[in-house]
Design a binder for these strands. Sequence first.
DNA 1: CCTATCTGTAAGTGATAGCTTACGTAAGCG
DNA 2: CGCTTACGTAAGCTATCACTTACAGATAGG
Lengths: 101, 101
Amino acid sequence: MTNADLKLEALADPTRRRVFELVIDQPLSVGALASTLPVSRPAVSQHLRVLKEVGLVTDRAEGTRRIYAASPSGLAELRAYLDTFWQRSLAAFATAAEEQT
Amino acid sequence: MTNADLKLEALADPTRRRVFELVIDQPLSVGALASTLPVSRPAVSQHLRVLKEVGLVTDRAEGTRRIYAASPSGLAELRAYLDTFWQRSLAAFATAAEEQT
DNA sequence: CCTATCTGTAAGTGATAGCTTACGTAAGCG
DNA sequence: CGCTTACGTAAGCTATCACTTACAGATAGG
């Protein structure tokens, strides 16, 4: 149960995934995110908390508002995690091909 | 809402992810999977149905039992999906670097 | 200061999802 | 043919989770 597991589970929710996609392209405030989404502002705030806990986003204060941005390193961990699946899949496939002959 | 979304959501559940990991290394029957996991056999069967629906596993009949195997192509789709996130993340980072100067 | 803006948190609610037990079905074996 | 093995499905229960409204805290501005 690595930390990448939590990242994957965090991106499972559709609206939370949309939040993440939005902050990928450009850092945004909570209110700006909420105005684009079909949910209330507290809901967005809760999603951002989850994304921050698993290390997919970072936040900085800017006056009264908080700017959230995607974390490339966090996303890299998830990518690496899925790559282990991919490599194992290829290894099993190669083994099966040998036994076939 | 592509099909890769469903793959990601399918792997969000811990036990379903364990099922998938098991069939990655080697094709297994439902009973063999259930004996290794802390859940009942019907539970495993339901997980396999979801994994099959989203295209992460394939199944073949072998006598009375069904053998499930991971689908490399299905996993490739999920990888490609995450790569779009990754590339967008890099693009945004490059843009921010330019504006910085 | 006083107010307005922006945000996080608490509490409560409705729906979804994973699990179990019970049942029905198809394929091998004596 | 019974009988066993292996599996899928239906029904029901429980817990989790995403959402809402209401409230509290912090910062800028007149």
